[in-house]
Write a protein that binds this DNA or RNA. Structure first.
Lengths: 103, 103
DNA sequence: CACACACATAGAAAAAAGTCAATATGTTTT
DNA sequence: AAAACATATTGACTTTTTTCTATGTGTGTG
């Protein structure tokens, strides 16, 4: 897939804030609209809106508009991309140390 | 394993900075000491040292001291923890929307 | 059509993270 | 023991992120 360093940071920023991690935990019980998420978090409405944008940008969460409500859910496709990305960036192709006093 | 929200953010902070992602790419070719990492990055030595600390704190990278050199490598155990964590936080237990106009 | 509701956006303030120069620490070499 | 080297720490500065209040936008309702 060849994601850029920048794109990788955007994906994993989703999980770099405690409130956002908490949002994942809540969304694990199923799709939920912003107003109900708000009830379970100690955040203002604009702050939640900001976090939902970060989450959607990462691809790990998707939003679905229905009338005046926004329904959010965890994206399994996004999760797969993140998983593949994590696997790809942590795989080691060679194990020998070609460094310093190991000449 | 039951990681706290805070612990999860510490793991994934490793991948939230472009320079750190680049460090992963370099370490994929094998263990390397800080001085050689430094040659490949446009960073000052103290900044690299800072990033290596963030990476080690995440568990995704491990450092091995050998004389005056610090050798860094990607930790496969750390990668597994991160993978399990990502899987755990994105799994959805129920899919029905119990929300708003879906009463 | 006016009002209420759900959510997004703008702008400002505060907190956190990234960066570097200077310096400290620990290790090897001469 | 002094000098040289590799890395870590400190402290200051800059940039980014988080957060809020105020306001805007779009949708449904009386």
């Amino acid at each position: 897939m060849e994601l850029s360093n920048k794109q990788i940071t955007v994906i994993f920023k989703a999980l770099c804030d405690e409130n956002r991690v908490q949002i994942f935990r809540i969304l694990q019980h199923g799709e939920l609209c912003a107003c109900h998420l708000l009830e379970e978090l100690h955040l203002s409405q604009p702050t939640l809106s900001h976090h939902m944008k970060v989450l959607c940008d990462s691809g790990l969460v998707v939003g679905r508009k229905e009338g005046k409500w926004m329904h959010y859910s965890i994206s399994q496709e996004g999760a797969k991309v993140a998983m593949d990305c994590l696997k790809e960036i942590t795989v080691v192709t060679e194990n020998d140390c070609k460094c310093c006093n190991n000449q």
